[in-house]
Simulated assay, not measured.
Amino acid sequence: MVVLTGVKAPFELTQHAIPIKQQGIDFAIRYYSHQAGKNLSLAEARALTDAGIQIGVVWETIGAHLHSFSRAQGLADGAAAYLMAQSVITQPSGSAIYFEVDCHPTAEDIAGPITRYFEGVNQAFNAARPGEPRYQIGIYGSAATCQAIIASGLASLSWLSPSEGAAVLSGGYAGYNLRQLSQSVLPVDDGKKIHVDLARSNDGLPTGLFRVL
């Protein structure tokens, strides 16, 4: 399996799908959230698929607000993310939804509220009826957070935040599935440029990316 290069963007990529593919972009990570303007749409997912770009999704509500993590919040976020994937995007079964922990929690934080948050996400996903899509749960965050939640069985995929680059290079955590890199500027049509975060997959490991029909 080759290493894939991707972008993460908080804005619609429909009109940029072809030019970014021409620049060697293999996948695009977009958002599920309560902010409609930030979210992946079905039309956008189809445009990316048609351009040959795989899609990844990350749920964002809490971000860096550690005090908001709880089992109840995880249950609510998990249910909302699952519904968006199933009913809005028709995301295929077996693909992943990553959940963002965009902070640097202590070991106590990880063992407490963050673990309870992912317990809630799992509860929401497990409530799906037989025959409905089954999605993998991924985690975005620090190496310590990713390792702990993966080890607990509450997520199956991990995506390292950009601050973890040094840890990866020094061999600190080799089991990640995706790794976010630095920000970049890509030229698109009509002389415009877009600001995105670059990302890479880990050779030989699954990513949870998908395409739509």
Rank of each mutant, 00 (worst) to 15 (best):
M1G: 11
L4N: 08
L4Q: 10
V7P: 04
K8R: 14
E12G: 12
L13A: 04
H16Q: 10
I18T: 13
I18K: 15
Q23V: 06
I25Q: 00
D26I: 02
D26R: 04
A28E: 04
A28H: 05
R30K: 13
R30V: 08
R30L: 10
Y32K: 09
Q35V: 13
N39H: 07
N39T: 04
L40G: 06
S41W: 02
S41P: 08
L42D: 07
A43L: 07
A47E: 05
A47W: 01
L48E: 05
L48I: 07
T49Q: 03
A51Q: 07
I53Q: 06
V58R: 01
V58P: 02
W59K: 00
E60T: 14
A64W: 07
A64T: 12
H67E: 15
H67Q: 15
S68F: 14
R71L: 10
Q73W: 14
G74K: 03
L75S: 11
A76H: 09
A79S: 11
A81M: 02
A81W: 02
L83Y: 03
S87Y: 14
S87T: 12
I89H: 04
Q91V: 00
P92L: 08
S93G: 01
S95P: 03
S95Y: 05
A96V: 03
A96W: 09
I97K: 00
Y98V: 00
E100H: 12
V101F: 05
D102F: 08
P105T: 06
T106H: 05
E108H: 12
E108T: 15
D109E: 11
I110L: 09
G112F: 04
P113A: 11
P113N: 15
R116L: 15
F118M: 10
V121D: 01
V121Y: 01
V121Q: 02
V121H: 01
N122E: 12
A128T: 00
G131V: 00
G131Y: 00
P133V: 02
R134H: 08
Y135V: 00
I137Y: 00
I137T: 02
I137K: 00
G138E: 04
Y140E: 01
Y140K: 01
G141Q: 02
A143W: 08
Q147D: 14
Q147L: 12
Q147T: 11
A148L: 08
A148R: 09
I150H: 09
S152T: 07
S152G: 13
S152Q: 11
L154F: 02
A155T: 05
S156K: 06
L157T: 06
S158L: 06
S158R: 03
S158P: 03
L160S: 01
P162E: 02
S163Q: 11
S163V: 15
E164R: 05
E164D: 03
E164H: 07
G165R: 12
G165E: 09
G165M: 13
A167I: 15
L169S: 13
L169N: 13
S170L: 15
S170N: 14
Y173G: 01
G175L: 10
N177W: 02
N177Q: 05
R179E: 06
Q180K: 12
L181F: 04
L181Y: 05
S182W: 10
S182R: 14
V185N: 11
L186P: 06
L186C: 04
P187C: 04
V188R: 10
V188L: 04
D189Y: 14
G191L: 05
K192M: 09
K192P: 05
H195G: 14
V196Q: 06
V196M: 06
R200A: 12
S201W: 03
G204K: 07
L205H: 10
G208L: 00
G208N: 07
R211E: 11
L213Y: 09
